Each structure stands twice: as structure tokens, then as C-alpha cells.
Amino acid sequence: MDIRPRTPADLDACAGALALVHTADRYPVDWPPDPHGWLTPHGLLRAWVAVEEGQVLGHVGLADTTEGPEVTRLFVAPAARGRGLAALLLETVRKAAGAPVLLEVSDEGRAAVALYERLGWRRVGSTRARWLNAAGEPALLHHYVSP
């Protein structure tokens, strides 16, 4: 398995992996009409993919926000979970940023919350999102900072 910078040629494979994640976890909550655009949000500085035998297994981006460097578009394909890929992708972002990194996660993402806390990320607050959770209410977002 290799973690390397994402290239434009990876976007179709990333969208395919994202579709599997969306079906399994409802992430993103609403399927984007333009998955390539969703994977390349405003403020994206860099993105990486976890690849094995030519197959994209995971993805992460580093975005520049008004609050500081932030993890964005992190996901691991369901069949590749349990191998430490999310931790490796997060560490890649932390090293590239050279400073503490922020992220936000929906309260519904219980496995992700548990992972971040196990890796030493610290919750620094919670807010309500503008989008709705599975219950049709504004989603509760938890905000974390890297160790």
C-alpha cells in the first residue's frame, strides 16, 4: 500500500471509492452532483490517496481555512478498513501542514469520532451544521485539533 499525492487522473477512482463510502456510511450526507468538484473544494491545498495494486482505497485533503489548516474529504473504502489507512492519511496531512490541523466530524460518524480520539485528537467544540442529519435535524458537528 502506498500513500501518494492525488493526481487529476485519480479522480474517477476516488469518486468510485467515495460512492462505496456514501452507500455504507452516508458520507457525504447527500451525493454530490459533481463528485470531482466535491473532492476538490475551495481552499484545497493538497490531496493524497492510499493506493494498492492500482486501486484507490482512501483519500484525504488539506484545506486552507480562516481557522487554519484543516483535514477535508477523508474517507477509506469499506473493504479496506481496519488496516490503519485513516491513521496514515491523517498523519500525512499533519506532516504536510507542519502545524496543528483541524477537522470536523458529524456526531453520526461514531467510528470516526472514536478513531480521532484514539489517535489523540482533542475535541475543541461542537456546533450545528446547515445540513441535516439522518433524523432530519441540523447535524451536530464536533471540532477537533490534532495532537
Rank of each mutant, 00 (worst) to 15 (best):
Leu11Arg: 08
Val93Gln: 07
Ala17Thr: 07
Arg130Ile: 13
Arg94Phe: 10
Gly84Pro: 08
Ala80Leu: 06
Ala63Leu: 14
Pro100Ala: 01
Trp31Thr: 08
Glu104Ile: 13
Ser146Glu: 04
Leu74Met: 13
Gly109Ser: 15
Trp131Ser: 11
Val56Ala: 07
Gly61Val: 04
His59Glu: 11
Ala112Arg: 04
Gly61Arg: 03
Ala19Gly: 04
Ala96Val: 10
Glu53Asp: 15
Leu102Pro: 13
Phe75Ile: 12
Gly120His: 01
Arg110Leu: 15
Glu52Ala: 13
Arg81Gln: 13
Leu140Asn: 05
Glu91Met: 05
Ser106Gln: 13
Gly120Trp: 00
Leu44Met: 13
Pro33Cys: 03
Val124Tyr: 00
Gly54Ala: 06
Trp121Asp: 05
Ala129Glu: 11
Ala96Asn: 05
Gly16Thr: 05
His42Trp: 03
Leu45Val: 11
Ala9Asn: 09
Trp131Cys: 02
Ala86Arg: 03
Pro78Asn: 12
Gly54Ile: 09
Ala96Trp: 03
Val29Arg: 12
Arg128Pro: 01
Asp107Asn: 14
Glu67Ser: 06
His142Asp: 13
Thr92Asp: 11
Ala135Ile: 04
Thr92Leu: 07
Val124Leu: 08
Val71Asp: 07
Val76Tyr: 09
Val124Asn: 01
Arg122Asn: 06
Asp107Tyr: 07
Tyr27Glu: 05
Asp34Lys: 05
Gly120Lys: 03
Glu104Cys: 14
Ala111Arg: 14
Pro41Lys: 04
Val71Ile: 13
Asp2Gln: 10
Pro33Glu: 12
Glu70Leu: 03
Ala97Met: 04
Glu117His: 02
Pro8Thr: 10
Leu74Asn: 05
Thr127Val: 14
Gln55Cys: 07
Leu90Ser: 06
Gly37Trp: 12
Gly58Gln: 01
Trp38Thr: 12
His36Arg: 12
Pro32His: 02
Gly54Asp: 03
Arg46Ala: 15
Tyr144Gly: 13
Gly43Pro: 06
Leu11Ile: 06
Gly109Gln: 15
Thr23Tyr: 00
His59Phe: 11
Gly109Leu: 15
